[in-house]
């Protein structure tokens, strides 16, 4: 296939792939939303004075940190019901929600750890160190968007599923890599500028945080994933 033919074919399927990408965005928003809410709750419990609450929150955080997301995906997809009846009406429990829940577990673990650190830093009046949570959370959320493609494995009609459908429809092995690269480019174009910005923001905050806390490690990476 000539480069012009490749571009034409990709252009023709762009609206279809874009529709799939919307699913990725929806799943990412849902999982980050669910995970952040749960994680903040865990962090508040961890910093409370009640020993029991602290213990429960620590246990749940350890579980969220340990359970492998990709296995959870299968776990939820296989074992959660497909339709639920509430008050006589039949509601479906679609795969994309199961995927969001599975991805949300890891987000909850991350937020629990990092938001706890932020809360403690804020209380100690290390405001810059506390604010590092914001860029770290942004980066983690974007990584979750990349992970939303695993929804294709349990039948969500997102961009990788649709890439496979496009490859099947084009019926040309040579096009395969171009379709995959094109799908990947969607993520790079959206995520890369945001990650670059938040890393820059983080470096500035970290430099200030070191003055307050004296911990050079504040300047490297995130707390945990």
């Amino acid at each position: 296939m000539s480069p012009a033919e490749i571009v034409t074919a990709l252009w023709k399927w762009t609206p279809y792939l874009a529709g799939g990408f919307l699913w990725n965005i929806l799943i990412s928003l849902a999982s980050v939303g669910i995970g952040t809410a749960a994680g903040v709750l865990l962090a508040v419990m961890r910093t409370s004075r009640r020993r029991l609450l602290q213990r429960i929150a620590l246990g749940l955080t350890a579980a969220a940190r340990t359970l492998p997301t990709f296995v959870l995906l299968f776990y939820f997809a296989f074992l959660f019901p497909v339709e639920i009846e509430i008050a006589g009406a039949v509601y479906s429990f679609p795969a994309w929600i199961k995927v969001s829940l599975a991805l949300g577990v890891a987000v909850a673990g991350f937020v629990s750890d990092n938001f706890t650190a932020a809360l403690l830093a804020w209380r100690a009046r290390h405001h810059a160190a506390a604010l590092i949570f914001v860029p770290a959370w942004t980066t983690y959320s974007l990584m979750t968007a990349l992970a939303s493609t695993t929804g294709s494995v349990v039948g969500v009609d997102e961009i990788v599923s649709r890439s496979n459908a496009v490859i099947a429809a084009l019926d040309d092995t040579g096009m395969m890599v171009w379709v995959y690269l094109y799908a990947g480019a969607w993520f790079t174009v959206v995520c890369l500028p945001l990650i670059t910005l938040s890393q820059r923001f983080k470096r500035r905050l970290a430099a200030r945080a070191v003055e307050a806390t004296g911990r050079q490690a504040e300047r490297v990476g995130e707390k945990t994933t």
Binding site: L146, A147, T149, V160, Y180, A183, F187, T188, L192, I195
Partner: peptide, 12 residues
């Protein structure tokens, strides 16, 4: 490296 970091691992 930045492109690799922002490409879904499944696609890679």
């Amino acid at each position: 490296i930045a492109v690799i970091r922002t490409t879904p691992p499944l696609l890679q």
